[in-house]
Design a protein around this nucleic acid. Structure first.
Lengths: 147, 147
DNA sequence: GTAGGAACTAGACCCGGCTCTAGATCAAGC
DNA sequence: GCTTGATCTAGAGCCGGGTCTAGTTCCTAC
């Protein structure tokens, strides 16, 4: 996602702006969630409005939101995402802090995967036991007593 | 955890019963959580009381709770754990259903790990980019604009 | 001109999973 | 007798992360 393309920018795609519904569709977030995220300060750029007041999003916003979705999916809490957004908003010079934030999260995700794998081992073990019980009809007393 | 030991049971450990505080300590759950789990029907055996009304847990309860902790840690919702507890409570004959429950959860955990790994890839990529920025001082325009 | 659909706002609500409170009881030790 | 500490109950509260409602405004198309 978001690897540098050889061409700098597609032409003729100037001033493309998207409605909240379109953004919802492209990011998988609900329109409710988009407004909620805005209130929560998760956007890097202030959301612009058309005459009439409807929100007007840029393609960059979608990219940013996709990143947010990934961060959320990996359990980053909204306040941390907000912090990250603030850093990006503030522009260059704070890359060290951004990196720290990411490293912290990376570690948490790592730990979470580790824990899930350990849980999975146990579950898989139990699955095997039950498959055995069902295959052979033999009950392993100490397993059954433990569920 | 809970592999069949060669010896059937430690002797002299008859009638060992544990207070709610001891169980909390051994399972990592709070006393509040233990009472809450009980209300929620997550126990296989009805919790017995001493004269005076204090809860009295058996070593088996601790084993069961440790399983619950693992299931929770891997994201199994309380209603599913309750269902599993019911099946175990009802005794033999429903192993197929227990297996199904476990398989379902196993798959979800699997999926979750997959998603986390994908997220981790992206995060790791971003980390690398920022490390590079900080090392070389060169900014990768399209990365920065995306946070 | 009017119907439909999408958007707007502020704020209430929901859900899961605990956590905590208040007030009472009990047992042990000083 | 009194304190301390663990426990009890029922029920309220909290937190995160949205979701939904109500009432309105706006644009487009018929």
């Amino acid at each position: 996602m978001s690897d540098c393309p050889p061409t700098l920018m597609p032409m003729a795609e100037v001033a493309t702006s998207l409605s909240i519904g379109e953004v919802a569709e492209r990011t998988g977030l609900s329109v409710h969630a988009l407004r909620f995220y805005e209130r929560e300060g998760l956007f890097v750029n202030p959301v612009r409005r058309k005459a009439g007041g409807n929100r007007m999003y840029a393609v960059d916003d979608v990219e940013w939101l996709r990143l947010c979705v990934v961060l959320r999916a990996s359990g980053m809490p909204l306040p941390s995402i907000r912090r990250y957004a603030e850093l990006v908003r503030d522009g260059g010079g704070n890359e060290k802090e951004r990196l720290e934030l990411l490293l912290e999260h990376q570690e948490r995700v790592h730990a979470q995967i580790g824990e899930l794998n350990r849980s999975l081992d146990l579950i898989t073990h139990k699955v095997a036991v039950y498959e055995d019980v069902l295959d052979t009809g033999v009950q392993h007393v100490c397993e059954i007593s433990g569920g």
